[in-house]
Design a protein around this nucleic acid. Structure first.
Lengths: 198, 198, 198, 198
DNA sequence: AATGAATGAGCATTCATTCAT
DNA sequence: GATGAATGAATGCTCATTCAT
């Protein structure tokens, strides 16, 4: 007996996310959210401590959604490191491209607005990055030193992040096939996990 | 030999850029710019049509600055394609990291603020990207089909853009040496220009 | 033997009084009272008609408390008029200084908040003042005319009230010993009850 | 060529003072002041930094006005200490009764609102009180110890303050002649300057 | 006896912009 | 070329109160 989607809290989050994406943090105003939801601005304060609290709730949503996807791949045991890496890269890219609103909130928004977001949440994200590093190490098979692994993982991330942000911001030439670009971005990132000796 | 911005218009742009970087588009307010410059808010309207006009002037500044750097490398004739590519990649990265305020304005800020920015300016940017593509083609030496070249150039760009944006937003683990990461990002992008099958 | 305010009504009055003293009438808000008490704002309306009603209840408390003290002295029969006067003056001063929250509510708060407070309550207060007048008359022993007695009683009151209010508002030079000042204030008021011409 | 009374700044102060007296600090809102003045709330910010600044301007006005009166008496040289004291007491009482709005702002308002008022202004007030003390010492003629003088001056002040505040708050029985009470209050305060030996 | 959800009015403040000078 | 005065709209937020449960 699932409650009807009239649940106010969720409506608020919905409209807030849309406004945030479409118009930015500042113009995502309590009043405008309320007016789209169809309630009073005051009511928002029944569900969120304040604007910042609402924003953090938005972040949480995104984080959770991303982690579920990533962990599903990272924790699979019947796979090779390469398979996991390719899976993780693609999952990350897909998450960003299919949920641009979430991705923007989490990784594109100026850190100014994100500064008070509990750091342990971002630490949880970094944690996944470390697991990616571990798989890169495994894939390369040469037991590389930890600093090198860290660099490789960061490079993979920046590469994927750049792809998502330019695509989401529609800065990439429209004549370019997005799917191709994404496939190639995965492969480009995978190159980081090739055994050395090239 | 930066002349002391006796010129009011330049002072305005100066302070506007600082405010924009430090506090974001919304809090870069006409009044606050004016107060830092030491004139009236009204005066800003003598030099710029309105806030949006001022913002576009800021964009122009950044574009010019970047193009000067890129063209210097791209137009050098006594160099190999590889040298030019490496130079362009590094120039782009350095520009972003040394002028985060410009880079943010041009490529990190949400396109909503940029929407009314004259498209020919962005076309000029895309133009440089095509020249990068040309050098990639030269470097690979196999006369690849144009679509492939476009993809490769885009991949290079996303990779560099990701590096800059995550570094500028300080999302990369602080323990990671920035210079190393930048060097490796250049090499990672250079890999795109390797002759195939090697 | 103050019973632990198990009673919700008493808890509300308690917290309301504290808030009133600490932050003033305006910031003594129903929500904040409720949150300190640990119940809903709505619940306050079960015990008080509205904020004004709650405030009047606070007044009543204070009035009762003061009257008990004053009457104890005024109604003692085995005492001289001088003793009673000195006792009343001191009781009044002590009440104000020991219960600044009550005193503020009753006599320092702007009458605007008090305007709708039932006048018979203030009449009860005036009643005590008349009894003070009677004792002054007795002490002076010259059967003075009633108007003069009224003036003397008023003077005593203003004198004590001034002492309390400046002390409570902490406007008196901190280097001045409060106890000394209070003692002297009593004596200064007692001077009004000296037989004339002496 | 005195400017017409349309001077906005003064109108604002006027209406603010009225509202403050009639309805208290909180309900003296920027919007309500503006609406009474006949301008926008925004305009108030052209003349005062913020609400607190406006309030301080109100305080300053009152302080200045009071000091002019007091100093005129205190600095007169062809007078006896007794004459000066009587004059000062009466000036203070008259100021309070004729400018209840100023007096309330300065001495009756809860210190909460006054807390950020520059302390040197209050120090200037205390300074006058010390001069009163000096005259009390002179009048008593027995070269009393400084602490005693301080107490006497404080007693005089509390006495006058009490008179003003109860009269202003209309708590004194209406049947009592105000002028008589004021005269007697002066005399009651003067008693503090009587040579000892009683 | 108590709550949860909701509201409408109000608050101080900041903003981009205009206009007469 | 620059200003001072002014505005209307918007912002985040808090308030007392009501009502159905």
């Amino acid at each position: 007996m699932p409650r009807p989607a009239t649940n106010l809290r969720e409506s608020i989050l919905d409209q807030a996310r849309r406004l945030l994406l479409a118009e930015g943090y500042t113009r995502m105003s309590m009043r405008r959210i309320a007016s789209r939801v169809g309630c009073t601005a005051t009511s928002l304060y029944l569900y969120f401590k304040n604007k910042n609290g609402l924003f953090h709730a938005l972040m949480d949503e995104g984080m959770d959604k991303l982690f579920v996807g990533l962990d599903h791949v990272l924790e699979s045991t019947d796979t090779t490191p390469q398979e996991r890496l390719r899976g993780v890269f693609r999952t990350y890219l897909d998450f960003g491209l299919e949920n641009p609103e979430f991705y923007e909130v989490m990784f594109l928004l100026h850190p100014r607005h994100t500064r008070r977001y509990p750091p342990e949440k971002y630490r949880a994200a970094r944690n996944r990055l470390e697991r990616v590093g571990a798989d890169i190490a495994l894939a390369r098979g040469d037991d590389p030193d930890p600093a090198e692994v860290q660099v490789l993982a960061a490079l993979a991330w920046t590469s994927l992040h750049g792809t998502i942000s330019l695509l989401v911001a529609q800065r990439v030439d429209a004549r370019l096939d997005q799917e191709t670009l994404v496939d190639r971005a995965v492969e480009h990132a995978m190159a980081l996990a090739l055994p050395p000796q090239s």
